[in-house]
Nucleic acid binder design. Structure first.
Ligand code: MN
Ligand code: MN
Ligand code: ZN
Ligand code: ZN
Lengths: 123, 123
DNA sequence: GTCACTATTGCCACCACTTGCGATAACCTT
DNA sequence: AAGGTTATCGCAAGTGGTGGCAATAGTGAC
């Protein structure tokens, strides 16, 4: 556990919910400018491997990181207005069971947001 | 309809299935080296707006493009071995209906692959 | 405590785009 | 066919993230 890794973990504790790596790097570099952004990225991966953090993908190319101990949940994101909504994993579980039994595939349905059109934007 | 846009559309017709923008740019620039990659990216977006093409996301940072008239389908991708599998949209429809009725959300379940562990990699 | 070994780091170049800008091409109107 | 308007283009710089590499820090064995 290096000081760099400690700083990344601390930043994740402070942020309650899906932060970006860039935001974490910005915070750390405010006090420790010698720490390289690539070190932050690598430590997020390492901490994920160790089971401390996980990530999800919304509809852009930016990965969202959070502590592993927050309750897992799915995301709906509107491709029109960009709004994000959280949904209980329970809603997604029937599909998970189906993919498991029909294809032998253990889906991680919280990993990527479901993209679509939200109620407000519906035509 | 500029010659650049025509070339992008032609490249998509030749490739039967989820190509990358980089691959299309490579093909076009082999014959027309003055055409900039950014023109390819912008034309893919324009053609999507016009309804000719769509895109999907697998588990990397690369966007996959295809003609809009190919049969829509879902993707399963294994985060362990990277294997990709196509599944009929029919399998995903029950979830789509549920999100529609419970949240008023019109999900596009073919837009992002479902990430998980495939049968071969299961522990 | 010293030494060896391994993990991690900062730096840099790259990747897959994205965006701003001034130049050019497409398309209307007359 | 010419002129004006708008869309699109090539170029170059920027963004979020990845990967190689040599230097350094952490760790554990003696
Ligand atoms: Mn998308
Ligand atoms: Mn991921
Ligand atoms: Zn919306
Ligand atoms: Zn697999």
């Amino acid at each position: 556990m290096t000081v760099q890794r400690r700083l990344v973990l601390d930043a994740l504790q402070r942020a309650r919910h899906h932060t970006t790596a860039e935001e974490i790097a910005r915070q750390i570099r405010a006090r420790h400018p010698q720490i390289d952004p690539s070190t932050v990225y690598r430590n997020l991966e390492a901490l994920e491997e160790l089971g401390y953090v996980t990530h999800t993908h919304l509809d852009d190319r930016v990965t969202r990181w959070h502590r592993a101990d927050v309750e897992r949940h799915g995301h709906l994101v509107c491709r029109r207005c960009g709004s994000e909504q959280e949904i209980p994993l329970r809603t997604l579980e029937p599909l998970g069971r189906r993919l498991r039994s029909e294809q032998g595939f253990r889906a991680d349905l919280a990993h990527s947001a479901i993209v679509g059109i939200c109620r407000e934007c519906a035509p």
